[in-house]
Amino acid sequence: MRIRVINPNSSLPMTRAIEATAREICADGTVIEACCPPGSPLSIEGHSDGVLAAHHMLKLVEESGPADGFVVACFDDTGVDGLRERVSGPVLGIGEAAMHAATMLACRFSILTTLKRSIPIIEDNASRYGLGARCKGVHAANIPVLALENENDDHAFSVIREAAAAVLEKDGSDALVLGCGGMTHFARRLGDTLGIPVVDGVSTAVKFVEALVGLGLKTGKTGGYAFPLSKTPPQTGKEHV
């Protein structure tokens, strides 16, 4: 089984951290191919970054070889719908995977992301997935995405840990979802510290995709995720504008 794990931003250190998590958690016989699109923003913090990253991610996938399944390692689930149109194997964003996993572990969960500007995007996604009622709140640690690149950065971990503790006290949730792929290397330490389930979307999405591929399930191609139509301009004798 070959799973392509795509970090939609162009941060190589973050891609390597995501790759390490994916390879640690995957089953024997699963090949993890981690990559990030050149030309994409270094981090995805807001709508415009997401649009640019989605464009470069789709271009990267079109130029790459086939895979059995795909993980999009941005918690905003950047470009997931577009990628589902382009490939036949299952595609999971780490946001959708983590939220669904949290509902299997707790009555209510909270999400901790990086910056406040990401909160509306994540809230909208939770509602679209039908999980808005189970999510007690989406909160920001007020730390930039690129500050999470180094897994040995005790300051970054301290910021995340303190913010997580405050979120859980405020919401009274039973589980915490990490709202950024760059937090993947903090998941176990946070779980040990907080004493509750801490859901990392990278590892969760990899295991879910493994399960879907193992079940022989693929993306449906008769409706909204059908392959894109060919865009052949009409033959009018004039240049198509």
Rank of each mutant, 00 (worst) to 15 (best):
R4Q: 12
L12F: 10
P13Y: 09
A20H: 08
T21V: 15
T21D: 09
A22W: 07
A27N: 12
E33Y: 06
S43A: 15
I44C: 00
H47K: 13
A54S: 15
M57N: 06
V61H: 03
E63M: 13
G65A: 10
P66S: 06
V71N: 05
T78G: 02
R86M: 15
V87F: 11
P90K: 10
V91D: 02
E96W: 03
A98Q: 02
A106I: 02
A106P: 00
S110Y: 10
T113A: 05
T114A: 12
K116A: 13
P120M: 06
I122M: 11
D124R: 14
A126C: 11
S127F: 11
G130V: 05
A133D: 13
R134Y: 10
C135L: 06
A140E: 01
A141H: 09
N142Q: 11
I143W: 01
L146H: 10
A147S: 15
H155M: 11
H155S: 11
A156N: 07
I160R: 00
A163L: 08
A175E: 02
C180Q: 07
R189S: 01
G191M: 07
V198N: 03
D200F: 03
D200Q: 06
G201F: 02
T204A: 10
V206Y: 10
F208R: 12
L212M: 15
L212D: 08
V213Q: 10
T219N: 11
Q235C: 10
E239S: 09
V241E: 14
V241M: 12
